[in-house]
Amino acid sequence: MTTTALAPDMTDSRSWWQKPRNVAIVAGVVVFLAVLGWLGTRDLTFTTDVQPDGSTSFDWAFFWSLVPDMLNAMTVTAWATVTSFVVALVLGLFMALGRRSTMKWISWPVTAFIEFIRSTPLLVQLFFLYYGLPSLGIVLGPLQALTIGLGVHYATYCSEAYRAGINSVPHGQWEAATAMNLKPSTTWTRIIIPQAVPNVLPALGNFLVAGFKDAPLGFTVGVTGLMFFATTIQARYFRPVEPYILIGIGFLLVSLPAAWLVRRLERYMSYERI
């Protein structure tokens, strides 16, 4: 009889952070975010030397001259997406836990808040934060308003995903944790959350992509992202066609590969689970 080979995970006693491949991925993500954070927080002005030709409805020279500014604006939008998504991930977890709470005075207001935020437009929420709150004595900068607005909005989505993930952890895990006399905090951090989060990673990835598509709304409160770039160019050169088409293409170039990555993650996760 030949011995059956063990699955790689069963012979490998290293923790995930001891495997070179994972370390490389994490390092790559950290470097990417650092560069993005550096690029995405610059003060940008949008202008081009090429004067558009008024006789055509689409001027290619003008179009190409806008590309560098568009890429700059893209970094701002992407960085705003990343920061608000971090807010959403953390806040969403607390919302999910709050909603599950057995204490009515916690779970009820949290549930009401989640439902309210989920069914009202992000645009009006941003207006509320940026134009409404100063009347209460709270003044937020453009990027702060966008980060909080987008972050809280997507936190409610993430909390629903977390909730589904927590519910998907088998009941026996809870019972085993009780039988082993683990504290509630240990049960959550060592048993439930490590099993719940991988299940919801694809859903969270989808929300990241969706957040990127909502982030240009920041132009209404003065964040110099993609829509801000397009409206500025439109106002300065009276040419709406080129900038809007350009940011549309820019969006597709980022969000289609991102969505493809999420789908791969989804397949990988379901493969790992079987």
Binding site: F212, K213, D214, P216, L217, L226, M227, A230, Q234, P240, V241, Y244, I245, I247, G248, F251, L252, S255, L256, A259
Partner: peptide, 14 residues
């Protein structure tokens, strides 16, 4: 893949 707000502006202006 395209943001609804960008699509809206393309539709309304371009």
């Amino acid at each position: 893949g395209i943001s609804s707000i960008v699509l809206l502006f393309i539709m309304a202006y371009a």
